[in-house]
Design a protein around this nucleic acid. Sequence first.
DNA 1: CTCCGCGATC
DNA 2: GATCGCGGAG
Lengths: 341, 341
Amino acid sequence: MFELRLVQGSLLKKVLESIKDLVNDANFDCSATGFSLQAMDSSHVALVALLLRSEGFEHYRCDRNISMGMNLGNMAKMLKCAGNDDIVTIKADDGSDCVTFMFESPTQDKISDFEMKLMDIDSEHLGIPESEYDAIVRMPSSEFARICKDLSSIGDTVVISVTKEGVKFSTRGDIGTANIVCRQNTSVDKPEDATIIEMKEMVSLTFALRYMNSFAKATPLASQVTISLSSELPVVVEYKIAEMGYVRFYLAPKIEEEEADPYVETKSKAQGKPTAETKPKLEIKPDVEMKPEVDSNMDNEVVEIKPELESKMEPEEESKTDLDIKPKKEANGEVQVMDVE
Amino acid sequence: MFELRLVQGSLLKKVLESIKDLVNDANFDCSATGFSLQAMDSSHVALVALLLRSEGFEHYRCDRNISMGMNLGNMAKMLKCAGNDDIVTIKADDGSDCVTFMFESPTQDKISDFEMKLMDIDSEHLGIPESEYDAIVRMPSSEFARICKDLSSIGDTVVISVTKEGVKFSTRGDIGTANIVCRQNTSVDKPEDATIIEMKEMVSLTFALRYMNSFAKATPLASQVTISLSSELPVVVEYKIAEMGYVRFYLAPKIEEEEADPYVETKSKAQGKPTAETKPKLEIKPDVEMKPEVDSNMDNEVVEIKPELESKMEPEEESKTDLDIKPKKEANGEVQVMDVE
DNA sequence: CTCCGCGATC
DNA sequence: GATCGCGGAG
């Protein structure tokens, strides 16, 4: 049987709020290590990786590794029924096709239990290696969220450029252009207000703001966000979860370079390369139909949506393994009981 | 002429917000006793009873009993124009087909008056006797509202079960099941946080969450709600209005019992009884077309909506008068002037 | 943290 | 029009 107990139940609520719009169904992997999840977003352009280490729970018991397939929307609905300072228990009996969520109010006067059917979801366990990045930006998560929201009222994509001095977020749209520069700033009263740039190489990459805004839903989880960029790799947007783990979002960059006119640039490439050859690397299952985002704004014809299909996600051989999909079988049948009460 | 003046005008705003979604048009009855209203909801399944006693007003004058037919949506619109700490005056001249709402800002710097046409609404005055109930639950109104809202994200109906230990709210839906238990708790810091169960008989009744959520709109009126349950009677959900009276909502239970499978249960009954024989007791006017709720969720076919029509609202002879509709003529032509300034 | 009022959305 | 989500205040 599997059982975890988390006094700060609001954490789970926030985690689900942050990922449920990106991923519909996913397997939660329960092992001695902890409670984790890895899943592609429904259009197979972004990837979410969640880890909640077993040590972070007040009680954690996992008799054998199990994978619980859940509809994240439904799971989020149920967790919403927990008060923000309720204690949350998640329980699944071996062989049962149900999971139970239990919420205890701090005073124990109100005790709720919710039962949800598990689903059978076939998804391989992805191995995501830690990589070296050209630049790592740490900044207040609320500031990052604000920037993504502001820019998305101007354009659809953001160019993130990192120099020694700071990080620049740029966009352009029908109504004009926008550039927001955040300078490195470590001399702040509170450490969570700091903006820190670690840079090996200058880097400038383009991403769909739609996804960035989706990632920013994790803002309540952490006061700081870490953005890791390399020209050959998907960006990683990470929110640390205090004492427990993280939520990481991976997104393949679009091909446009910062200074080039994206429309012209894209159009020529779109004509030159057939779509079939340019599927982004983040695509796992070729049999699953691709759903390119169709912008409601069709002013710029089809070139507006092509970039998503042509993401620069075909690294040369040596870095090819970076987001390779290698099913990772963890030691199964292992028994672990932890009780930190 | 009729005139009332209420310093705490926000009370009236809240009252109208709480009932305007349930009842479109209704007669306000103005008498020496006070300002009151009784009306069925538009689908004739629920009933609202409002009483604001004359003693609660700063000024109350009622020369003769009158009945003012108003569209509650429009009345709510006008009251929304009052500031939350405005003093509200409602005035109607004899023989006039208009009512005037006057709002004075606390500083007297802004004085508004709104005039609204009265309507002719034919509805008998219902006599609703006080009954004995198997169980009476008092609990924080906000908690009740939260429970109804949470459960309605899972299912459409709630089973309310009362035992000596507490009250249980349960539902089930496509995505799973939910049970919320609130224990009796009288040892609280503030009396408005108490949950008190008065029980003669265990009782378990099923109601449409849609109505419960509508009733819960009255939450701002009172910190506590009283839920009175008997197996043969409509539930009463009461919000006391400080020093003045109450808003009470009556709702006929659905026929399903707690442990039975509601769908099967209902289906057999639905087949056994023709609709014409099973109109709920709360129906006043047979000539008014019944509008059963049509759930968007049609998975369970027509049985899903039948229960509302078959509500257990046919008490045996001795209790038959309980929600009987007896036109209650109060002494008319009586003159009363009260001035409590 | 909860309540309240506001703006945006469907 | 109703709901939800956001931001500000107690």
